[in-house]
Deep mutational scan, measured.
Amino acid sequence: EPLWIRPDAPSRCTWQLGRPASESPHHHTAPAKSPKILPDILKKIGDTPMVRINKIGKKFGLKCELLAKCEFFNAGGSVKDRISLRMIEDAERDGTLKPGDTIIEPTSGNTGIGLALAAAVRGYRCIIVMPEKMSSEKVDVLRALGAEIVRTPTNARFDSPESHVGVAWRLKNEIPNSHILDQYRNASNPLAHYDTTADEILQQCDGKLDMLVASVGTGGTITGIARKLKEKCPGCRIIGVDPEGSILAEPEELNQTEQTTYEVEGIGYDFIPTVLDRTVVDKWFKSNDEEAFTFARMLIAQEGLLCGGSAGSTVAVAVKAAQELQEGQRCVVILPDSVRNYMTKFLSDRWMLQKGFLKEEDLTEKKPWWWHLRVQELGLSAPLTVLPTITCGHTIEILREKGFDQAPVVDEAGVILGMVTLGNMLSSLLAGKVQPSDQVGKVIYKQFKQIRLTDTLGRLSHILEMDHFALVVHEQIQYHSTGKSSQRQMVFGVVTAIDLLNFVAAQERDQK
């Protein structure tokens, strides 16, 4: 057995438009009618409502009807409940999964919650491996369901041993009777949507819809739904939504950006999952974080739909894509998950301010006199920076000697690579993860907040409520011999709460 199987392995699926269902090699399930009293909570997966979006479509000038398939009504709160249950049931049916076995899954959280929910009911041990950027709410729900959680670096490539995929496979090879159901490759993922989600949409719309818009992560949702719609409703256009920084969209030119990270969760990847059939997507749109969270908040405030950030991405694209539809036509959007997962993220004004998705003037509360002053007023001194090749031991000596707790790590040209902190280095040394002679590049981390000289002290204040420091950066445009230009970030300084307090105190003292 291989040590790991690539999540982007070539698909062996034989589905073709027009091929009889009787030739399918898979076990198919028909939607079942729910009894009045459910035998367990797993029976509350599927049969989610279709809700008309009344205000947002009109606000953006849509002539067509805009409908939302509300997947956050599933038992675990997301569309991923469907595939989690289906993968477990299919693994039980073919004898792969037996009582007492362990389920391991690399996930952005929602599939993990679905699997942990099913594992709690069915009696399996469950280990979820997820990147650090995923919300604390997801972690809390997983723990409450009895799952064990392993976190991995957000910026690790999918084929790196440190990625959530790599760590999951390492655990599988170490733990007896453990299984990775593997949402990236498992046919049960798109089949769950082909058999149930798509049929529900067709039934709820009486077979009449002209466009379907869905955000894409593993691709199982859009693949399964689109294949069924292509068979039953061939005139329906399928629109895929991919965040900026991901590479799922086609044509490839759409993916060209210097951005590699994004805040919206559960969609987009740096590889093409095996289950994603991009041939059934008629057109791709890219979405960005700001519009995703703005539209998610709009869905909550104006439509009462308590959905997550990827739902915002989907609707932001839908109001663009559906401009081509006329009166009497219908566009369906998939709202994948609930706001429950993001209470401390985009639902929080403070978080939105820190990330730059909300401006101070958007909030009406009274601010102190210094709130709208610029960061450049602080008069920061030149920063202490270190090269990635310097040793951890030497870096600790320098920081202690100069009285700093942290320093930016830059390359020879001064471009920011990340940050090192005294606390992080000492804990890594004590844990045996690094040696004093190791290069400081081994303990770089990139989960820090950046701020510009033109940003306000109010925004800085919000950042420092949650973080010990902020890195002050400025952009530099560099022209190359080819005539092309590129933008790079340079370090201007490091600012802490002490710097802000000293500035405010000094100004008030001078005024007296």
Score class of each variant (00 low, 15 high):
I238Y: 08
E244R: 07
S246L: 04
A249V: 02
A249D: 02
E250F: 02
E250R: 02
E252L: 11
E252Y: 10
E252A: 12
E253F: 08
L254S: 05
N255Y: 07
N255A: 07
T257Q: 02
T257H: 04
T257M: 10
Q259C: 09
T260N: 06
T261P: 13
E263F: 07
I267P: 08
G268Q: 04
G268N: 02
Y269E: 08
D270A: 02
D270G: 06
F271M: 06
T274C: 05
L276F: 08
D277L: 06
D277A: 02
R278E: 02
V281F: 08
D282P: 11
K283H: 02
K283S: 09
W284R: 02
W284K: 04
W284P: 02
F285L: 10
F285G: 09
K286L: 02
N288Y: 14
N288R: 13
D289Q: 02
E290P: 12
A296L: 04
R297V: 02
R297L: 07
R297D: 05
R297Y: 02
A301D: 10
E303H: 11
G304T: 04
L305V: 12
L305A: 02
G308H: 02
G308K: 02
G309R: 02
G309T: 09
G312V: 02
S313F: 02
T314S: 14
V315I: 08
K320N: 13
A321G: 12
A322D: 05
L325I: 07
L325P: 02
Q326Y: 15
G328R: 13
Q329A: 12
V332H: 05
L335D: 05
D337K: 02
D337H: 02
V339F: 06
V339Y: 07
T344E: 08
F346H: 02
L347R: 02
L347V: 05
L347K: 15
W351N: 02
M352S: 04
M352C: 06
M352L: 09
L353E: 11
L353Y: 14
L353C: 09
G356A: 02
F357T: 02
E360V: 11
E360L: 11
E361L: 09
L363N: 07
L363H: 15
L363Q: 08
K366A: 12
K367F: 13
K367M: 12
P368L: 15
W369V: 09
W370L: 13
W370S: 04
W370V: 09
H372M: 07
H372F: 12
L373T: 02
L373M: 08
R374A: 15
V375I: 12
L378P: 08
S381N: 07
A382S: 12
P383Q: 12
T385S: 08
V386G: 06
V386D: 02
L387A: 08
L387T: 14
P388H: 08
P388W: 11
T389D: 13
T391F: 12
C392R: 02
T395G: 02
E397T: 15
R400L: 10
R400S: 08
G403A: 08
G403D: 13
F404P: 02
F404R: 04
D405W: 14
Q406E: 09
A407S: 14
P408H: 02
G414D: 14
V415F: 13
I416Y: 11
L417R: 11
L417V: 12
G418P: 05
L422T: 07
M425C: 15
L430N: 14
K433P: 02
S437W: 15
Q439I: 07
Q439Y: 12
V440W: 06
G441H: 05
G441Y: 14
G441F: 12
V443G: 13
V443C: 07
I444P: 14
Y445Q: 02
Y445F: 10
Q447F: 09
Q447T: 10
Q447W: 10
K449T: 02
R452T: 04
L453T: 12
T454E: 10
T454D: 02
T454W: 14
D455M: 15
T456D: 13
L457R: 02
G458C: 14
R459S: 07
H462M: 11
I463A: 02
I463R: 08
L464T: 07
L464V: 13
F469V: 09
F469R: 05
A470K: 02
E475C: 14
Q478R: 13
Y479G: 15
Y479Q: 09
H480W: 07
G483Y: 11
K484W: 13
R488A: 12
Q489L: 14
V491D: 02
F492K: 15
T496D: 02
I498E: 10
L500N: 08
L501C: 11
A505L: 02
A505F: 13
R509F: 13
R509T: 14
R509N: 02
D510G: 02
D510F: 12
Q511G: 14
